[in-house]
Structures are given as structure tokens and as C-alpha cells.
């Protein structure tokens, strides 16, 4: 039995209703028996929203919600759909009808589009997408209906704990490069814990129709573009800031990243030296984490 006013439960703790207040509602992590006895079945801190009590597991996998921006890797190209690995138990599905066609034209997808799916997103491509729907068996449908969602080249992605990325208004956030002597770089905060840091991909000039041959040439062009040294260094700096934040268990958001970058340049650290423990200690002291 938990102590009165407990803030933490572990599995099998019963008689919770009496301890956590009579009128409480129990959400995730609890089971209510026929005799109205409430038992916890996960281990973790309690979260209280008005009268709703839920327990969040200590290290849970990413739980998709509609509208989440996620990053994922195409694991398979199937008939009329892609399978995408977004760090959930099931593969997410991206239907051909749920992708944006070049130039934003709206039409039925035909057989040619189907043949050309690999030119859009090929095997092992990293893509950004949005969660369109979640189904009761745990599977997820994605969409990439606006041009901001696309496959990613010329950068790096970092995997952090999904709990370190908070759902917010802006998951696409450019990092200002002017203090570092280069153009802005693109940072995408995937709710599933994948962070993308890369060269800003400017809008490709509009194509009049989805023509397979030109599309392939253009896609190849998107893939391999020259990245200037200063941009590459800034990408590494920002990516290492994300790693630093993850190592310290701090929320990965634009504000924190800018803060870490500023500290590193202030100390004259090269991007490759940002993971040293003395820098982590310095940040911990600066941010008053101890």
C-alpha cells in the first residue's frame, strides 16, 4: 500500500482509491476491479490533472498522438504504401495517397505514381512526417501532405529519449547561423525522440507535373549537395548540443540548444570537444542543476 499522498507507485499496489482521495479518476497505469479496487500496474511517478491520476512508466516507449511531428526511416516499400520505422512497437504506414505531390497538385494517385514510389522515398531513407491516425492495435498512419515533410539529406540525426522532446508549437525550427558565419541550419524535433540537424533544404523549384525522369534527376540533386565547412561545423555543434542535453537528461528544445551552443563558443570549444566531462560539469554548474 502506498503512503498517503504518495507520488510514486509500483505494480500491484492495491487499495489506491482510499489513499489518493475518494473522488479521483484513474487513467493510464491503473486497473479497476469489479469491486472498485484500484491496482497499479506500472512503475513510475504519478501525474495529476484535476481529478485524473495517471502513472507514467519510468522509461516508456514513444506513444504516438495525432498531429505529432516524427522522424523515421523507411523500412520497406510495399504496394501503395511505405513502412516506416518510427521507434514504436509496430511499423508506421505511410500511404501513397497521403504524400504531397511536387507542386502541391491534387489528384488521384495512378499506376505510374505507384511504380515511382522509390523515387519519392526509397529504402532506408530518413523522412519527416506527421502522425495522421493511431489505431487500437497500436499501428500508426503517417502523412506528408505539406512540403515541409520530406526526406532528409546533408545532415545528421540523433536519437534521444522520447520523453526529452516536448510537444510544442514548433517542431521545425531553424538555427540562426549568423553568429557562426554561415547560413541558417534546419533542426527538426521529432516527438519520437529523433532530432534532425542538417543543411536547410530550400524549396525545390516547382515542377509542373510529377514526371518520373526529371523527378529522379531532381531527387538525386537534392541528395548530394555541397555543404560548406562552416555549415558542417555548425551542424556538428548543434548535433553535439543535442547529445549534451540528452546526456544531462535535459529537455531538447531550441532555447536549450542555443544556450549550450553559446556556452561552447564562449569557452572556445571545437564541436568535437563538446562531449568532454568538464564541459558537462560546467553546464551543470551554470544551469544550477546540482
Amino acid at each position: 500500500m502506498p503512503s498517503p499522498g504518495a507520488s510514486f507507485v509500483s505494480p500491484g499496489e492495491s487499495n489506491l482509491a482510499a489513499h489518493l482521495g475518494k473522488g479521483s479518476l484513474f487513467g493510464h497505469g491503473f486497473q479497476v476491479s469489479l469491486s472498485d479496487d484500484v491496482t497499479s500496474n506500472v512503475c513510475g511517478p504519478l501525474a495529476l490533472v484535476n481529478k485524473l491520476i495517471s502513472a507514467r512508466p519510468l522509461r516508456s516507449q514513444y506513444l504516438p498522438e495525432i498531429g505529432d511531428v516524427v522522424l523515421g526511416r523507411v523500412s520497406e516499400v510495399l504496394a501503395k504504401r511505405w513502412k516506416v520505422d518510427i521507434n514504436i512497437p509496430h511499423d508506421a504506414v505511410l500511404h501513397l495517397s497521403a504524400v504531397h505531390l511536387p507542386d502541391g497538385i491534387q489528384r488521384r494517385r495512378n499506376y505510374d505514381d505507384e511504380l515511382d514510389m522509390r523515387a519519392r522515398y526509397g529504402d532506408r531513407d530518413l523522412i519527416s512526417a506527421e502522425v495522421q491516425g493511431c489505431f487500437s492495435d497500436g499501428s500508426v498512419a503517417l502523412h506528408t501532405r505539406i512540403s515541409a515533410y520530406s526526406r532528409k539529406f546533408n545532415g545528421q540525426h540523433i536519437q534521444v529519449l522520447p520523453t526529452l522532446v516536448k510537444r510544442g508549437k514548433r517542431h521545425f525550427c531553424d538555427f540562426q547561423g549568423e553568429n557562426y558565419g554561415c547560413t541558417d541550419i534546419e533542426v527538426i524535433y521529432g516527438c519520437n525522440g529523433l532530432i534532425w540537424v542538417g543543411q536547410s533544404s530550400k524549396e525545390a523549384p516547382g515542377r509542373s507535373s510529377f514526371d518520373a525522369d526529371t523527378a529522379r534527376v531532381d531527387e538525386a540533386h537534392d541528395r548530394f549537395s555541397y555543404v560548406q565547412r562552416a555549415v558542417r561545423e555548425l551542424i556538428c555543434r548543434v548535433a553535439n548540443s543535442v547529445r549534451v542535453l540528452a546526456a544531462l537528461g535535459m529537455v531538447v528544445d531550441p532555447h536549450n540548444i542555443i544556450d549550450v551552443c553559446q556556452h561552447s563558443t564562449f569557452l572556445g570549444l571545437q564541436p568535437k570537444d563538446m562531449m568532454i566531462s568538464s564541459f558537462l560539469n560546467h553546464l551543470v554548474r551554470e544551469r544550477g542543476l546540482v
Binding site: 505494480p11 500491484g12 486497473q31 500496474n41 506500472v42 512503475c43 512508466p57 519510468l58 522509461r59 516507449q61
Partner: peptide
């Protein structure tokens, strides 16, 4: 338990 798998006890 740490992995967040629901258990009766």
C-alpha cells in the same frame, strides 16, 4: 517494470 511493461504485480 523499468521498461514500462504493464504487470499485475
Amino acid at each position: 517494470c523499468e521498461a514500462g511493461v504493464a504487470m499485475r504485480d
